[in-house]
Every structure is written in C-alpha cells, then in structure tokens.
C-alpha cells in the first residue's frame, strides 16, 4: 500500500516536520508535525486550514525555499527537489507576492520564461498564450507599477503557467480578486486539471475549493485533521425546510427548540432540521407557528461547515491539552 502510493503520487511528503527556531529556547514554532501528503496526478488538491496552520510552510518546503527539520519530500519520483529537472515541471504562485514593478507585464513573463530555459519564438508563443489565458492581453505593455491588485495576481498566475508545467502550486490564488475574476480563475484551473495537470491550491475560499477540488485536506496547527475527496467528506446529509412569514418571536421560540435559521432571502428563510429530530416534528412546529412552507429539501454539509466543525474540534482538543 505504502509502496504503491509512492509510485503514483506526484508530490509526496513523509513524516515531514518543520520547526522554526526562535531566538530563545521555548520560542520555537513547530509549524508542521509529521505531515504525510500524497497529491495524485491530475487532481486538484485543496489545501485548507486557518491562518497560521502551516499551509505556506508546506508549500515553501515543497519548493525548497525553506528546509525540513525532518522527513522527506518526493516530487515526480525524485528526492532532489531543487534540481532543474524537477523544477522545470513546477509552476508556483506565491502568497501575496510582488513582481519587479519597473517591468511591463510581458517583460516579467519573458524574464521568468527565460529562467525556465525558454527562448526565441517558443518563449514568445508561451508568453502570448499565458497572457491570453489570464485575460491580461489588454495590459501586457503596461508597467506593473500601474497594475491593480487583481492584475498583479493574474500576472502572477501567468508566470506560474509560463512553462506549461505539469504541477501547479498556488498559494491563495484568488485573494484580492473580484467575483467575476474568481470565476474566471476557477474556470482556468478546472481547465488545467482537464489537461491532466496536477494542482495544489491553498485557499480560504471554501466555496471555491468545494467547487473545483477533487480532494481536500484540512490542516490545523501543523497536523492534517481530515483528508479525502469532497464526496467522502461531505456525506452528512440534513433536511432543510424553506418557509416564509416567520416573525421574530416565532423564530426565537423555534430556536429554543433547536431549530436554527441558516439562510435568509428577504421574506423567505431556510430552517435546518436538527439532528435526531424527524422532519415531521419540525413541520409540526412550523405549523404551530403558522409558517408558510415553501419547500423541503435534503442538503449536504458544506465544506465550510465541515471546516468549522473539524477546526473547532481540533481547537477544543488543543485547549484541553494545555
């Protein structure tokens, strides 16, 4: 099993530990604890976790920007992750990075393309394609100094794609983008996956991750709390009842009975059937409050709910341990 995994995984970490050494004893930060990840070829892996949980640390380790305290990293079957052979296949978008801003959009891409060893007509073709893909053709001749945050993020994505790499490692790719841009980026990423590329995406945008990821891992305090496909993880189903005409008082009474409101849209709202209660009981209560029932539908747990549940539990556990 173990063996099989190491053959098939594109990126694999084995008991990876990272301790940032502080200036004094007791100030060390144990950012990753025995991390075991296996990113499979052709998947989008959503790497989640609250602030400071170790996502960026993991990514920096994968890119050789920092070094493990212990444990191993294997990328495309190679342990020498800083070799040109491995790095040629990786595109990386750093978290909130900055690009040399005295250059024009296309010049940045030319620079990074050259670092990948691209040259001549080949390079120009790749620049055109990458700029087109991220929708920056109109601003390619402008200086980066005049770019907005979202434009920088797009150029960042373009530079990660410049060599048409097999692996993409993106640290919060949609931060700072407007909703339309997010959708565009999401489509681009899904498209890349369809081309057979492997993507590791760290993000706080749970809805987005839910929409595009094949698998997710939730990290907390340097430990993976849950990992699996979206289908595996979001199995818990609940019923929700859409109603209208509820007054404030009615809602307070209902919530006293364990029924929570999960969604408002003007007059209408969705009530969640509590665990261990049957739909009939809830309907009875609604009837007693004279609510108009619009629909009854099953719903599955959202990634956000899973996230809050998992991280909340881990946090509580940590607090107890202290």
């Amino acid at each position: 099993m173990e063996r099989h995994q190491s053959v098939s995984a594109v990126i694999e970490t084995l008991n990876l530990n990272k301790i940032y050494e502080g200036a004094f004893r007791g100030q060390d930060v144990h950012a990753l604890k025995d991390l075991n990840l296996a990113i499979k070829p052709g998947e989008i892996f959503g790497y989640l976790g609250p602030n400071g949980s170790g996502k960026t640390t993991t990514i920096k380790l994968l890119l050789g920007l920092i070094f493990p305290t212990s444990g191993t990293i294997t990328i495309m079957g190679s342990r020498d992750i800083s070799s040109a052979k491995v790095k040629r296949n990786i595109g990386y978008l750093p978290e909130g990075a900055y690009y040399p801003d005295f250059l024009r959009g296309e010049e940045i891409l030319r620079y990074y393309g050259k670092l990948y060893g691209l040259r001549g007509a080949d390079l120009e073709k790749r620049i055109d394609a990458a700029i087109e893909l991220v929708g920056m053709t109109h601003a390619r001749k402008r200086l980066l100094r005049g770019y907005s945050k979202g434009m920088r993020q797009r150029i960042g994505l373009a530079q990660a794609l410049i060599s048409d790499p097999q692996i993409l490692i993106l640290d919060e790719p949609t931060t700072g983008l407007d909703p339309i841009a997010r959708k565009e980026i999401r489509d681009i990423l899904a498209n890349l996956r369809n081309q057979g590329k492997t993507l590791l995406i760290s993000s706080h945008e749970l809805l987005e991750v839910e929409l595009i990821s094949d698998r997710v891992g939730i990290l907390f305090d340097g430990v993976v709390q849950t990992m699996g496909t979206i289908e595996e993880l979001l199995t818990e189903r609940e019923m929700s009842i859409e109603v209208s005409g509820a007054s404030e008082e009615a809602l307070t009474r209902l919530s006293g009975k364990g029924i929570s409101v999960e969604d408002y849209t003007g007059e209408k709202m969705k009530l969640r059937v509590p665990k261990g209660q049957s739909v009939y009981d809830t309907l009875e209560l609604c009837k007693a409050e004279q609510l108009t029932i619009i629909s009854i539908a099953p719903r599955r747990e959202t990634l956000e709910e899973l996230f809050v549940r998992v991280v909340g539990a881990a946090e509580a556990e940590r607090r107890q341990a202290v």
Binding site: K60, L63, G64, L65, S82, A84, K85, K87, R88, I90, Y92, P94, G96, A97, Y98, Y99, P100, Y112, L115, Y116, G117, G156, Q159
Partner: peptide, 15 residues
C-alpha cells in the same frame, strides 16, 4: 524583502 526571490528560486535556478 519584497519576496520576488520566491518566484525566482522556485524556477529551475540553483541558489
């Protein structure tokens, strides 16, 4: 300081 180094060192460029 401005993290441009991340994008450069992650390319096939040895330190």
């Amino acid at each position: 300081d401005n993290k441009v180094i991340y994008t450069v060192l992650s390319k096939p460029v040895r330190r």
